[in-house]
């Protein structure tokens, strides 16, 4: 059985509720307006601006082969492989281009091995095996006044 209550003696409550509904609609409308800039294609400029971080002086660069460099910058830790194949330094990101596992330099086979699905990259980052679709990402670097800087995006 449905026991019912008609709004006798509840006019005040009814008015209050309808005022509440209208106020909510107003808030929603204003909220919608405030959200319009979301659709406008400008950038907040927060996204990874390239910044150069000093890691060591240029004499610490590898003469040949590969050197692993770990450093922190703004509370984030970074790992970069510096490789010197034939006199030219290349800074490589260790993030596998397949699905983003961290590759390791294997000095016995002279290649970067990915532990996840077996991708392999040569000393210049070129894919020599496995499912990786692209070579390892090369990072920008610069040498200023004998100091070696790596470009990172935070």
């Amino acid at each position: 059985m449905l026991r019912t209550q008609r709004n006798k003696g509840h006019e005040g409550r009814r008015d209050f509720l309808s005022a509440l509904v209208k106020a909510s609609l107003a808030v929603l409308g204003l909220g919608g307006l405030a959200g319009l800039p979301y659709f406008y294609p400008f950038s907040t400029g927060k996204e990874g601006a390239l910044e150069f971080v000093r890691v060591f002086d240029e004499y610490s660069l590898p003469r040949r082969g590969v050197k692993k460099v770990d450093f922190t910058f703004r509370d984030q830790s970074f790992r970069v492989y510096l490789s010197n194949a034939n006199g030219k330094i290349i800074a490589l990101s260790p993030t596998c281009t397949h699905l983003g596992c961290q590759v390791r330099w294997n000095p016995f086979k002279n290649e970067f091995d990915c532990p996840c699905h077996g991708s392999a990259f040569d000393i210049t980052g070129k894919v020599i095996g496995g499912p990786a679709p692209r070579p390892l990402t090369r990072l920008p670097y610069k040498i200023v006044n004998g100091d070696f800087y790596i470009g990172v995006r935070t």
């Binding site: 400008f42 950038s43 996204e47």
Partner: peptide
């Protein structure tokens, strides 16, 4: 409006929503 459903760009587009889009 900003998400790109592709294996190569999905992650990038989510980062963009987080960092570059106003209020994203």
């Amino acid at each position: 409006v900003y998400y790109v459903p592709s294996a190569t760009d999905a992650y990038k587009s989510v980062l963009e929503i987080n960092n570059a889009v106003w209020g994203g």
